Each structure stands twice: as C-alpha cells, then as structure tokens.
Amino acid sequence: MLKSFLSLFADTPAPALSASDAEFAIAVLLVRLARADGTYGTQEQARIDRVIAARGGLSPWEAAELRARAEEAESAAPDTVRFTRVIKDGIPYEDRIQVIEALWDVAFADHSRDAEEDALIRLTASLLGINDRDSALARQRVEAGRA
C-alpha cells in the first residue's frame, strides 16, 4: 500500500484515488504535525491512533499499524503538498474541515501549542482550500471539546 501510495507522486498519469489513499495521507499529515515541534511522544501517537481509528472505523491495532506506515512515509516525504493534494482531490470540503480539526486535536495532545504546529496547520488549511474563518472555527471547536 505504501509503495502504491508513493507512486501517486511519480511523473506518470495519476491513478484514481481511493478513500484509503486520502485516509493514509491524513495519517501522514497527523504524524508530520506531531513531529513538527521536534518531539513525538506517546501522547501524540495515542491521539493519532484514536483519530485515525475513529475516521476509518479501525481497531486500535489497525490504527497503530496505519500510523506506523504513515511514520515511514512521513520520514521519506520531502514536502506536505503531495499529501494535501490527495486529500483535496479525494474528499469534499466539509470533510477537509474535519481534517483540520484532527490536526488541532493532535496538536493539543501534548497540552502545548507550538509555533511550528500552528504554521503547519495554517499551511495545510491553505493547501486544502480551507478558508481562514473555517480553520479558526475548527480550532475553536477542538479547544471547546478539550475544556
């Protein structure tokens, strides 16, 4: 699956995207965000597992396996654009807002808000075509749910 996913970015005609491609790209972005501040701990890993399990209806074991594959892909990927493109092409706007909520959820997992994470979420929202208002509302919903 990882090999086929990464082949989406080769200079060949793009194959049709599946929902699993978009979900994998989301998992990679969640890992990238969790690593953005230079620390990647068990709290963030557990939060990523919960988010991707809930999104995909996966068992905890399946979610951890998907996260492990996403960690590998994130380490090998030079940029964020390739993943946001898959998401933007694969899911509707309203669901992309939920991706921003998932990113904020992971960003708050370690109970701190870092400039690197904020910047990556702003970049991701822009690349996903999410306007500033909807992005801010997504963050506020996540913050309100954590109170």
Rank of each mutant, 00 (worst) to 15 (best):
M1S: 13
M1D: 10
S4F: 07
L8C: 09
L8F: 10
F9G: 01
F9R: 06
A10K: 14
A14L: 07
P15M: 12
P15D: 11
L17G: 02
L17I: 06
S18F: 03
D21H: 02
D21N: 02
A22V: 01
A25D: 01
I26M: 10
A27Q: 00
L30D: 00
L30S: 01
A34Y: 02
R35G: 00
G41M: 01
G41R: 05
T42M: 12
T42N: 06
Q43Y: 07
Q45I: 10
D49N: 13
R50L: 08
I52C: 02
A53V: 11
A54K: 08
A54M: 08
G57H: 03
G57D: 00
L58C: 04
L58H: 03
P60I: 04
P60G: 06
E62K: 09
A63M: 06
A64L: 09
E65G: 15
L66D: 00
R67Y: 05
R69N: 09
R69T: 06
A70M: 06
A70Y: 04
E71Y: 12
A77R: 02
A77P: 03
A77S: 15
P78L: 13
P78V: 11
T80R: 11
V81Q: 13
R82V: 14
R82G: 10
R85K: 14
I87H: 06
D89Q: 07
G90Q: 03
G90D: 10
Y93L: 11
Y93G: 07
D95N: 12
V99A: 09
I100Q: 01
E101A: 12
F108L: 15
A109R: 04
S112H: 12
A119N: 14
L120M: 13
L120S: 05
L123A: 10
T124L: 14
T124P: 06
L127A: 15
L128R: 05
L128V: 09
G129R: 06
G129L: 06
I130H: 01
I130P: 00
N131G: 15
N131P: 12
L137K: 11
Q140C: 08
Q140H: 12
V142P: 00
V142C: 08
E143F: 06
G145A: 05
R146C: 05
A147M: 14
A147L: 09
